[in-house]
Computed example of a mutant assay.
Amino acid sequence: MLYLDNAATTPVRPDVLEAMMPYLTQWFGNPSSHHTVGEAAADALADARARVARVLGMRPGDIVFTSGGTEANNLAVKGIALGAQHLGSRRHVVTTPIEHESILESVAYLERLHGFEATRVPVDRDARVDPDAVTGALRDDTALVSIGYANNEVGTIQDVAAIAAAARARGVPLHVDAVQAAGWLPLSAADLGIDAISLAGHKLGAPKGTGVLGVRGRVPVEPLLHGGGQERGRRSGTEDVAGAVGLATALELAEAERDEASARLTAIRDRFVARVLATVPSAELTGHPVHRLPATASFTFAGTSGEAVLLELERRGVVSSSGSACAAGSDEPSHVLVAMGVPPEVAQTAVRFTFPHWLRQPLDAVADAVGASVAAVQSGG
């Protein structure tokens, strides 16, 4: 069985598990406890925070450990917007209609319960947002811009640096959801010019339930969780020390491998895409053909059912997905594809292949399995 659903989750890397083990066993203490076991945990937490900060081009005090990407995105959108609201009259946020549900639902929450207005800047057929359109959406009362670095369904990469420059010129914080970008694209907030960035450990070979929000200290953040005041008051709750160590280890490994893995996977991806398009008449690539993640290839197959194609692929030893795992089981067409202008009935035929970082062999056999699976669905058998 070949697992090609790595955008949904990845297995824990052996080096990550090894780094975590001491903090699940011998040094299991609460990092807020003032004794030897607790202080060892606190030291490990501080070290993990510093290691993550180095990769993100931020200060250790900017790093907030969370339970995953969804919590990090919620804290970024709600926390920064509400923090700006409390300091003045800013009640406007800017985003796009193709963001992860954790962004879109957080924006809707601000509209519904806190009187915010939101501008959802449209994207083009390739899922790219025009930085000039984002600039045009900014207002004097804009509290936050929140944009995904790379889309989780089609892999399109946004021009984050250009958007950051426009937001910075207007004094508006920019949050970037980098959950899918980590390990494939540069993450330095200093180089990109961004104010906040979200990551999820389980996309990188760390366990599920681990995440990070990096947010510059100058940006006010209203906490969503209240209690003991951990994470400099921005996220109360006893910290998962082993999870933080695991995430830091996975992030460092991914960053060290990034350039080589990106080049290698881009070549494999392009060969796979070309073979699918050449051999499957109904196949259409979704997302930008060039500005896309190295390990993502997504298609629609008009006249089929995406779920039926997935079942046929699994019969042939290939595991993939129809899009975001967070929307699995929904009968609705992908909001990403619909926002790109794909007809709903075609959007429901989508299949996404996301490759592991270690992949080295061509995927010609998988491309042939795609063709056989689509043909089987179209023929009814």
Score class of each variant (00 low, 15 high):
D259F: 15
T300K: 01
E71P: 06
A8L: 15
D364E: 13
L187F: 11
L213P: 08
P60I: 03
G227N: 14
R264M: 12
R292C: 15
S188R: 13
T266C: 04
F272V: 04
V179M: 13
A182M: 09
L251A: 13
H357F: 08
R234Y: 14
V64I: 15
G217F: 09
I80E: 01
V37F: 10
H291I: 00
T156A: 06
R292V: 12
G287L: 00
G237F: 11
P220K: 05
P31H: 06
A190M: 04
T96P: 02
A41P: 01
W184H: 14
T95V: 13
A328L: 07
A261V: 15
P173S: 13
Y23F: 15
A372G: 14
V221Y: 12
A261N: 10
A267V: 08
P131G: 08
W184P: 00
G209R: 11
G61E: 15
P14R: 09
T95R: 03
A263I: 06
V377S: 06
G209E: 12
G243V: 06
P344Q: 02
A297P: 00
F301K: 00
L2T: 05
D124S: 03
S373H: 08
G287H: 08
G227Q: 13
R269E: 11
L224E: 13
V346E: 10
A250R: 01
H291Y: 10
E153N: 13
K203I: 03
A7W: 15
L313P: 02
E252P: 00
F65H: 04
P281E: 11
E101P: 01
R218Y: 11
S102N: 04
L192E: 01
K78T: 09
L313W: 03
H288L: 04
V16K: 03
I147M: 06
T286M: 06
K208I: 01
E239C: 02
G193S: 05
V276Q: 07
A137F: 04
L75R: 09
H202P: 01
V241F: 06
A161W: 04
V107E: 11
A81H: 09
A250M: 02
A250Y: 05
V123Y: 06
S373I: 07
G29N: 14
D331C: 01
M20R: 07
A127D: 08
A372E: 15
G211W: 10
G243K: 04
A376Y: 12
A108T: 11
V64K: 00
V241K: 02
A283Y: 03
P186H: 05
A44I: 12
D368I: 11
G29Q: 05
G61I: 01
L192W: 02
P223L: 00
D331K: 04
Y23E: 09
T238W: 08
G214M: 14
W27Y: 12
R315E: 11
E18H: 10
G61F: 01
K208S: 14
A256P: 02
A256G: 05
E252Y: 10
L113W: 15
L104I: 09
R13P: 01
E117H: 12
S324R: 01
G79L: 06
W184R: 09
G83A: 05
V221G: 14
G229L: 02
A189N: 04
